[in-house]
Write a protein that binds this DNA or RNA. Structure first.
Length: 421
RNA sequence: GUGGGUGUAGCUCAAUCGGUAGAGCACCAGGUUGUGGUCCUGGGUGUCGUGGGUUCGACUCCCAUCAUCCACCCCA
């Protein structure tokens, strides 16, 4: 029988790794709630047009990485390559701006990009996004960055570097773009092939090139920060001042740019050397996109958001994945059918009281049962055989200490709660 | 898309110069133990990724292909 494998770049998430993911999601859920974010779940598939307009034709994502197909009605659909555009579509479609002045949403799910597979990079991967609509003030920018700082602190991911920049908007951005082209054009011969193309299609991305010769040229390029008008400069200064007041460490990175076209003004990126991510050291990135809602046909609405790379973040979280799973409180080893029934009933009661209980349902020897209790890391074990059934008493064994505690089976819960406390 | 590494038991990996494969882990049983986890003994499975080529003979050499990992590019 020929077996089938998963699609290249699309992987199964299995235990114990899944426990680490669950922990990340749990921490996010609680933290985001404290900051006023509500969960939303948009579809995985959208009209292709949304990403072309939202993410931008100049981006590599739209250019060559989308999973685009025609459905049976001959509509062009695309598996979302990121979450922000779909969430913006939902925000507009449900007239959120008319319902509330400020909307804070978060979402989690798979996104798809057809690209080369590498460490922390897959064709189906997961992002956790937060988006805040309706506020253009710099204190929100700082709040968002501070929330992420709190998140990674809670996850014990370190060291973290927070890079912040302002890529300008409107006329400021246009003037900088012209100045950058004016500077780069005489050096065009020294740029790599990609950058020669970028010079025409998306000059700001040249700033982000990793090729040494390009970096050398970029080192002398004008800084976007020198082209910000008074309003943008003031905004960026306020973001920094607020971050400082919140005690969030950050570095201004004038050459930090984002790969998606929609960003305006404040952009940021968290990187880490943890997890051996190599060149894929960015674990979360985001920024303002004050023009996108309007460009997608909604009312002009300022917005800011970020996308957390789940796989990369999980790789950076310390400790073995298994340590994130809830520990087994009690393992019940049973000998014989009658004992198994009693064990099943006892376990049911204990589980309803919140204890993690594992019962050996197979007919195997005691030795194998205790071996399994040991492997599962059970805190306590209880052997149930004919004598225990007859007397209604047993011995709770502390697996680590190898000490045994007599227990009356009818009083099992209280004894266990005392021992596990 | 470009460059490099690796594909052998369920998992992690060995196999000399080319002579049709082995260990650990895991699993079960037995010994010891209090019917009882760490110690000891025993128990078995491989289209050697796939297809072709060279050879008397290929896990080993060659070509192709697929998968996987790493770097680059790009991004989260």
């Amino acid at each position: 029988m020929e077996t089938t494998s998963s699609v290249r770049g699309m992987n199964d998430l299995l235990p114990p790794e899944s426990a680490k993911w669950a922990h990340l999601e749990r921490v996010c859920r609680e933290l985001f709630a404290r900051f006023g974010y509500d969960e939303v779940r948009p579809p995985v598939v959208e009209h292709t047009e949304l990403f072309v307009r939202g993410v931008g034709e100049g981006s590599d994502i739209v250019h060559k990485e989308m999973y685009t197909f025609r459905d049976r009605s001959d509509r062009s659909l695309t598996l979302r390559p990121e979450l922000t555009a779909g969430l913006a579509r939902a925000y507009i479609e449900h007239s959120m701006s008319a319902k509330e002045a400020v909307t804070r949403w978060w979402s989690l799910g798979p996104v798809f990009r057809y690209e080369a597979i590498n460490t922390g990079r897959y064709r189906q991967f997961y992002q956790i996004d937060c988006e805040a609509y309706g506020v253009g003030e710099p204190t929100l920018d700082a709040e968002v960055i501070a929330m992420l700082h709190a998140l990674y602190t809670a996850l014990r991911v370190e060291p973290i570097t927070i890079l912040v920049n302002n890529v300008g908007r409107g006329e400021d951005r246009g003037r900088y773009r012209e100045a950058l082209i004016a500077y780069l054009t005489p050096h065009a011969d020294g740029l790599c092939g990609d950058c020669k193309r970028r010079l025409v299609t998306n000059p700001l991305r040249v700033l982000d090139c990793k090729v040494e010769t390009c970096k050398a040229i970029v080192a002398g390029a004008p800084s976007v920060l020198d082209f910000l008008g008074p309003a943008a400069s003031e905004h960026f200064a306020a973001v920094q001042a607020t971050l400082t007041e919140l005690g969030v460490p950050f570095t201004v990175a004038p050459r930090l740019v984002r790969g998606l076209d929609y960003y305006t003004g404040t952009v940021f990126e968290f990187t880490t050397t943890a997890g051996n991510l190599g060149s894929q050291s960015t674990i979360v990135a985001g920024g303002r996109y004050d023009d996108m809602i309007g460009e997608l046909g909604g009312p002009a609405t300022p917005a800011i958001g970020f996308g957390i790379g789940v796989e990369r973040t999980v790789l950076c979280m310390p400790g073995d994945a298994a340590t994130y799973a809830p520990p087994v409180g009690l393992f019940i080893a049973a000998h014989g059918a009658a004992a198994r029934r009693r064990a099943t009933a006892l376990a049911h009661t204990l589980r309803q009281a919140g204890i993690v209980v594992e019962v050996e349902h197979r007919e195997v020897g005691m030795k194998a049962q205790f071996r399994r209790a040991d492997k599962l890391g059970a805190r306590l074990s209880l052997a149930l055989g004919e004598s225990e059934l007859a007397s209604g008493e047993g011995k709770l064994k502390d697996m680590a200490a190898r000490a045994e505690h007599p227990v009356v089976l009818s009083d099992l819960l209280a004894t266990i709660q005392r021992l596990l406390a």
